[in-house]
Amino acid sequence: MSDSAISAEFKLSGKANWYNAGVAIVFDKNANKLVDLTDFNKVTVTLKCSLTNSLYFGLSAHDEKVTQENIPITYRSSGVFINCDTEWREVVVNLDSLEVAPWWLHKFGLKASDNKLYMDKIIRAYLETTYGSPRDVDSMVSISRISFSGQRYNVLVNFFAFASLIWIALAIWTIKFYSSAKQNISEVEQPLSYEQLTFNSVRERDRQAIIDYIAKNFSNPEIDNESVSKAVGVSRTKVNEILKSEYGSTFTNHINKLRVIEASRLLAEKSDAHITEIAYLVGFKNISYFNKLFKEEFGLTPKEVRGKGTQI
C-alpha cells in the first residue's frame, strides 16, 4: 500500500497567526471545472498521520450567489474531522450527511435552512490540518487512496499517479478555516432562556434585543461588538453598558462564557463528537484557548468533563 502513497513531512510555523497544511484534489486539468458527484454517497480515505495531528476532509462546491473564483472561503464547504493514527486506516465519509456550516451561511446572509452542499457543483476535495494540530512540531501525513462510491460508479484515486494532487505546507488556503463538523453534531441549541418582557422603555427594548441577538449568534466565530451594534441598531457603548449591567461582564467574557457553557452540554450529550469539533462548533477558533477558558470556568478540562459523561 505504501508503494502507491504520497507522503509529506511538514512543520506548522508558530510565528504565523493563521496556519495549516493540506492537499487539494481537483478533478480536471482545469482546476475550476465543476463536477457532478450526486451519484456518489460515500468516500473512503486511506491514510496514516502523526498522532499529534488532527485532520479535516472536505468538499467545496460552487455557489452562484456567493462564490468568487480563487477565493476559497466563498465556496460552499463541508466535511468531517479525522483522528490521526500512525498505522494505515480507512476513514469512511457519508456524503449524504454533509451540510454547510451555520457560520458560513450567516456570513453570507443565507438562510439556515439553505445548508445543502450542492453535490452537482463540486470544485475540489481537500484534506488539511486543523487548529488542533500543534505548531513547531515535525509532522507526517501519508495518503494511499481516495475512493468515491455510489449506486452506479466506483472511482479509485491512486495518488502515486494523480498529477493534480498538490501538497502545500503552511497555509494551502490563506483563509481562517473555521470548520464546523455537522456529521455527528446537531446545530447548537441556545443554552439560556429569557423571560418575555413588556417593554416600558427604549432601554428595555434595546436590552432584550441585545440579549436575544447574542443568544442566537454567540457560536458565530465572527461575532463582535461591532456586528451586534449594527444588527440591533445601537451603539457599541450601549452594548457594553447593557452587558455590564446585566452580567457584570465585558462583551468578550460574556461571549466566551456562553460558548463554554454550551460546550459543556455538548461534551456530555454528544459522545461521538470530537472535542475539537465541539470547540469549533460553539465558535472558538483556537483549541488551546478553548481548553484554557474551559478549565478556568469549570476547574476541569474538556477531556475530564467528557469522561464524567454529565453536564457540569
Rank of each mutant, 00 (worst) to 15 (best):
I211V: 10
I210A: 01
F290T: 05
W167G: 04
F251G: 02
K11R: 14
Y178L: 12
A171S: 13
K65Q: 07
K116P: 00
I185H: 03
W167T: 04
D63T: 01
S164D: 15
K48R: 15
I255C: 06
I278T: 05
V141M: 13
V202D: 12
D206H: 14
K270Y: 15
K33Q: 15
E69P: 03
A209C: 02
Q183V: 14
I82N: 05
S113K: 00
L192K: 12
D212E: 15
V228L: 06
S219V: 01
S288N: 11
G248S: 10
G299Q: 02
A169W: 11
T301Q: 03
I185L: 14
V35T: 14
I123K: 13
W167C: 01
A171R: 12
I275C: 03
N220V: 03
A181G: 03
P72I: 02
V157M: 12
E204A: 07
Y153S: 12
S2I: 03
V91N: 04
L170W: 06
Q183C: 06
Y131S: 14
S7I: 01
K11A: 08
V23R: 05
Q190S: 13
Y194V: 11
I255L: 08
Q68G: 00
V232H: 09
N115Q: 05
V91H: 07
K244V: 07
A112I: 09
V23E: 00
K292C: 04
D206E: 15
I166W: 02
R203I: 10
A112T: 12
G283E: 09
N53T: 15
G283R: 04
S164M: 13
F10C: 10
V234C: 08
S54W: 00
E304S: 08
S201G: 10
E277A: 12
S147Y: 10
W104F: 13
N32L: 06
W173G: 13
R89Y: 02
K303M: 06
K29P: 14
F177I: 05
V23Q: 06
S179A: 12
T38E: 13
G22Q: 02
L47F: 11
S193V: 14
V80G: 00
T252H: 05
F27V: 10
S186T: 14
K303E: 15
D85H: 03
